[in-house]
Design a protein around this nucleic acid. Structure first.
Lengths: 340, 340
DNA sequence: TTGAAAGCGCTAACAA
DNA sequence: TTGTTAGCGCTTTCAA
């Protein structure tokens, strides 16, 4: 591997001039330019980004932390961020946290050592890591938090309006005449399930349908785990309870598929006997039969906007602190008007 | 941000001693250790990996190039590589090439400038970039090529035996009594489709069923584009031709779903009227109804083995040059014995 | 338009 | 067990 010295020697100039030519930072004589370029070609020289990063105190790198890269939702977001960053000359260091707060913290510290210019955390573990962690980090370097939110006016948050998505989906079901809607949550106390339940309840309340009880014995909510398999089992073993409802609203599409399969295995048809609504609009939902009505999370623009934001923060441009993206209802074939 | 000088001053020792403590490279007095650690804590010091990389000529980074991060197959591979690398203290720089040879080349050059310790290319564009490109790269630094192969005894290749997978799938169809099998290819002249067609033809030949023709008018092969939508259309507009066959073997699962949907919309049922076989075993295939019989590519171990290989290459350990992983037949419900 | 030299933060050879 | 010093490959003042 040749370095800038070799090039300078070969071209018969000083390394300063080579550097200037490389970076276009000062005028260089045309003939000198030619000589340098020839030397570069001859030696197959490539500037060392590490050395450059050391002196410039800028690595043109952004760190991304993702909970599960295998989760369909996230690669799409990573892709959006990565596209924006690459276009501006930044590279991506990607770390998979397994949705573990400790791993996330380790990744952040590693990023700091690596002198990344900015950090994007997708679905940060705000249930595990205290707000102070993120606040302090946000003071240290450009930071963007994606798809979660807590109250802080200095941090840049970019997320989908899941609450409104759940609200719209519930309204749609209500408009179809369903009065007893069962909600299948994906986890007990996560940010995402709480937000969706809020939207769900808001819609019920607006029609005077919200039962006034403490949340403990909410009997129109069942808790599953975001997987198709376990939701299948959950429905099968709670059929008696399920039968009291005419529509089932699931916190993600995978669970909606589990529900449909369970219902079928009990001899029911969707949407004939039950309406089933999903959330996320993963690619399966369009391919499945029946096509699953769901809430689209606008994943692509989530990534694009996040990538845009981190680049702007790094460039010290203004960025809106709190960007909430619209979700939209995707109507396919898994819901129908209630039979009287 | 404090540096090693600040720590040394604070602890009242030289920077060498701090460095030794940090790297555990030489014995340091217990009290000195304590003083240094206190200084580190007080100043919240983190070693600068860039500076360290410059002098050590090692960045603990591996570059990964992936054609489409949104393609379901690839995140799984990336995950495997990333797990292995992280466990050994390496970070991942990820670049999405859009399966474009030029982008891939740019990414490689960028990696070289960034002084990565090794490069893993998933599905390298060997149809566009000449073998010489990879051979030269392989002489420059540790390189692993995943899921493609060309004849070179110095490069480390890790790939699934797609040929054998296609062979086994075809044999299975043959064993069910199907004599007229239609193959849906995903592209015209790609490595992957050629390899699968070879396996397909080998099975036919072994039963004396291979038509002796030039490949131009192979009338048991239809060319699609790996998407569900276009395969749907292709089947619809070629129904007359399709009807001459009793089984359809698709080069990926998405196309299998497109085929099933098209068949349904023509009033047929799968597997009653046609048997349909996929390839890849993406997660939809288990959830779809009917469950799609397919060839599993062993994606997880593809990533794991690749990650392992690049680390070993970097550590100058021995690595098998040519690792082919077994594919396996996953039998679900989309194929049945032919009706007489 | 060009060059000499300092220095980015760190490691490692050499010396003590 | 510790410190001095050179230098990794580059950018950037300062001076010419």
């Amino acid at each position: 591997m040749s370095n800038i010295n070799d090039v300078a020697k070969e071209a018969g100039v000083s390394i300063t001039t080579v550097s200037r030519y490389l970076n276009n930072s000062y005028p260089v004589n045309v003939n000198t330019k030619k000589a340098i370029q020839e030397a570069i070609n001859k030696l197959n020289y490539k500037p060392n980004a590490i050395a450059r990063g050391l002196v410039r105190k800028k690595t043109n790198t952004v760190g991304i932390i993702v909970p599960y890269i295998t989760n369909m939702f996230f690669p799409e977001v990573v892709r959006g961020i990565s596209d924006q960053c690459n276009a501006k000359g930044y590279d991506i260091i990607l770390v998979n946290s397994n949705s573990d707060g400790f791993e996330e913290k380790k990744a952040v510290e590693n990023f700091l050592e690596r002198q990344v210019d900015g950090i994007v955390i997708i679905a940060p573990k705000i249930e595990k890591l205290p707000p102070s962690f993120y606040r302090k980090l946000n003071k240290t370097l450009p930071l963007v938090l994606v798809n979660k939110y807590f109250n802080d006016k200095d941090i840049v948050f970019i997320y989908n309006d899941e609450r409104d998505g759940a609200f719209k989906a519930t309204e749609y079901l209500l408009d179809l005449g369903h009065k007893n809607i069962l909600f299948i949550s994906g986890s007990e106390n996560s940010y995402s399930s709480e937000v969706k339940i809020k939207g769900f309840n808001k819609a019920l309340k607006s029609r005077g349908l919200l039962q006034k009880k403490n949340s403990e014995d909410n009997d129109n909510i069942l808790i599953s785990d975001y997987t198709s398999e376990n939701t299948f089992k959950l429905i099968k073993s709670n059929m008696e309870h399920v039968r009291k409802h005419s529509a089932i609203f699931c916190a993600n599409d995978l669970m909606a598929i589990g529900v449909i399969k369970a219902l079928r295995s009990e001899g029911y048809e969707v949407p004939r006997d039950f309406s089933v609504m999903g959330f996320d609009d993963i690619s399966i939902s369009a391919l499945y039969e029946p096509g699953i009505s769901t809430v689209s999370q606008n994943i692509t623009s989530l990534g694009k906007v996040s990538g845009d934001a981190i680049i702007k923060l790094i460039s010290k441009e203004d960025v809106v602190r709190n960007q909430v993206l619209n979700t939209s209802l995707i109507i396919r074939d898994s819901c129908s008007r209630i039979k009287e």
